[in-house]
Amino acid sequence: MLIVTGTIDVPAENADAVAEAAIAVSQATRAEKGCRVYAFWQSVENPGQFRVYEEWDDLDCLKAHGASDHMGTWRAALKDLGVLGRDVVMFEPGPITKL
């Protein structure tokens, strides 16, 4: 399993448009092979900051996701809405302990 997580920062005045685009890409992505979790959360303190969290079966599934049409649409929307910063990482978790 792979986890992808991080933040995307946009101008606060574009946050509603980014949220709409995030809903569209999330719905399409959750239907993809190998996608276990795909979600965004908007910061309550900084409305222009969104956290993304993803879980994928493997790297091939993640690569296919990156090449999908809806990811192209998502990238174009972010470019048009003015991404200020992006800090997203991928990692493989070790043993998982339920808390």
Rank of each mutant, 00 (worst) to 15 (best):
K33Q: 14
E55M: 06
E32C: 02
R36L: 11
E32W: 00
A19M: 11
A31Y: 07
E45Q: 15
A76G: 07
I3Q: 05
H70V: 02
V44R: 05
A24N: 12
E45Y: 14
E55G: 03
V37G: 08
A19T: 10
G48W: 01
A15E: 02
M1S: 11
G48Q: 01
G48H: 04
C61L: 01
Q49L: 07
Y53A: 01
T73A: 02
E92A: 14
G6L: 00
L2T: 02
A15P: 03
I96H: 11
P95T: 14
D9M: 10
A12P: 11
K79T: 13
Y53W: 03
A77T: 07
V83Q: 01
L99G: 11
C35R: 02
L81A: 04
M90W: 08
M71T: 09
P47K: 01
I96R: 13
E13S: 13
V37A: 08
K98N: 12
K98T: 15
Q27R: 14
R30D: 08
M1E: 08
A39V: 13
A12E: 04
F40D: 01
A21N: 02
A12R: 05
G48I: 05
R51W: 03
M1Y: 13
D80M: 12
V52Y: 03
I96E: 11
E20D: 15
V10W: 01
A21S: 02
V18N: 00
V88M: 05
Y53H: 05
A21F: 02
T29Q: 04
G66Y: 00
A22L: 04
C61I: 02
R75Y: 06
D69M: 07
T5I: 13
P11D: 03
H65M: 04
A64D: 08
E92W: 10
L59H: 15
S43W: 09
P93V: 07
H70A: 02
I3L: 15
L84R: 08
V10S: 00
A64H: 05
M71A: 06
D60L: 08
A39P: 06
D57T: 14
E45H: 14
